[in-house]
Design a protein around this nucleic acid. Structure first.
Lengths: 199, 199
DNA sequence: CTTGCAATACGGACCGTCTCGTTTTGTTCA
DNA sequence: TGAACAAAACGAGACGGTCCGTATTGCAAG
């Protein structure tokens, strides 16, 4: 009954949408961020500027959507942390992997662009926390809760605080380029966190 | 003998320089950062654009110089942390003060602008570390060394790591607006840090 | 034959460069 | 001492360029 009028143009819409997001990711990953303009994205995507403005209100929103789509593709896939029963080993594995991610120039540029937009747009920051940061944090907190049950972590620990102490130093060192991101550094963050919140 | 040629026009130079830096600070503190343009700075300072470009190569450099001048004014003044002999009390005092600083809207905008520029300009980031971050870190590390001698902190602790664990969570929570910055939060960071690096 | 689109023209903001004529400053000489 | 001068830095703003966000147009997918 519903939607019986007119042909289904949603496929065109979806194709151009994907072209725009892919072009945005490509440009952000390879160019200096100030060269990533709406006009450049449109040209790269083979799309009129109006088609971009029809969907998103600003460059920030496009960049965010492009990265959000990335994480949604990977959905249901690796959304679980290892749980071998050894919290220290599992965390070191994850933190070392994180360090390696940040070493990839494309990833670096992507996250740097995202952070630039987020730092100056409170609404976008809220959407980032809701749709990107929080789900990831929940996965990590699930692993920490498992450790609490196993007696490897203080049962009264504030898990948000634990995650901050674990990740924020890494993030800041990366953002400000204030020191090398090595596996040893990842390990020392895990060690410090476990000393602070161990049983 | 040297420098006998040409009159000393440094007074004019210095006056316009100060006008530019003051105008930049005022604009960054009160406007949305994207409205802070070279043309706006020049107009506010009552100065030609060329006078700005004669001294600094980019808006980033002007903004950085404006904030650097601020910190150099306060030089030799409060460049020491309290040392009552009680590390926990002293750190909580300092961290609570930091939390309050971030609550000031002008300070918030200033530091947010600085971070935006720094995150996307490696050369500027290096200058920031050298001239702003490092001196402050040295002051903090001096207090930590005193605590090490007093047996209140692990003598083998990596003091850079201690500072990161202490400050980075606060910085990240502020940057991403991911939670409230309260005195209780400041205290809990000190507590966690001291558990991690205590004697 | 309708609807969404690519392409492109448009006015506006700001960029960074470039003249202008003016003001400040130090020097020279009456 | 002070009037005249030359050098330097300056305020103002014109300029061509890029990108913005909007509006129009003709075409192609459905």
């Amino acid at each position: 009954m519903s939607n019986t009028k007119g042909p289904d143009h949603s496929r065109r819409r979806e194709r151009s949408r994907q072209a725009i997001l892919a072009a945005t990711r490509a440009l952000v990953a390879e160019e200096a961020y100030e060269k990533v303009t709406i006009e450049a994205i449109a040209a790269r995507a083979g799309v009129g500027k109006q088609t971009i403005y029809r969907r998103w209100p600003s460059k920030s929103a496009v960049v965010f959507a492009a990265l959000l789509a990335l994480s949604e593709d990977a959905d249901g896939q690796s959304v679980a942390l290892p749980d071998t029963g050894d919290l220290e080993a599992d965390l070191k594995l994850v933190m070392r992997a994180t360090v390696e991610e940040f070493a990839d120039p494309s990833f670096d540029r992507l996250i740097r662009a995202l952070n630039t937009e987020i730092a100056n747009d409170a609404a976008l920051a809220a959407e980032y926390r809701e749709k990107l940061a929080r789900p990831l944090d929940e996965v990590k907190k699930a692993r920490l809760r498992s450790a609490q049950k196993a007696g490897q972590l203080d049962a009264d620990a504030d898990l948000d605080l634990v995650l901050e102490v674990l990740y924020a130093p890494l993030f800041q060192r990366w953002l400000h380029r204030s020191g090398p991101l090595t596996a040893a550094y990842a390990d020392s963050l895990v060690d410090a966190t476990l000393r602070a919140f161990g049983p």
